[in-house]
Amino acid sequence: MVLNSIWSFQKISGMPRVAAIEFPMGRAFGDVGDTQLHRDILLATLDVFKQAKLPGWVEHLPFKWPHPVDETTWLPDPPPPYLEIIRESIDDIVARIQERSVKKP
């Protein structure tokens, strides 16, 4: 079972069971000290072991992040070294991804 915010990775990774959650990276069970929310999310995630009937099952959990999105951070300060590379060359990277896709049979 994978508890994952970026559940769309399922398409290219093929996880057996996914519990999807709309929370920021690094705090999939909720914010610091929010013990009831941690518990509710863990129990809901464990429930997916019962609910999932087929390989590739994705269960979208109904929980909402309790803070405004624009006030929520998950990247560290300073940001990861690779992010500077990506920011400088994202258009080229995307072009290569698309080109690779076209070349596939």
Partner: peptide, 25 residues
């Protein structure tokens, strides 16, 4: 769920395009 709601712009583009143009497993 929105898988990209909290992502930084460049990371969003990178992952979104990898998923969009990636091969279904």
């Amino acid at each position: 769920c929105d898988p990209y709601l909290f992502l930084e712009e460049a990371i969003h583009k990178l992952i979104r395009n990898n998923v969009k143009y990636g091969t279904l497993v």
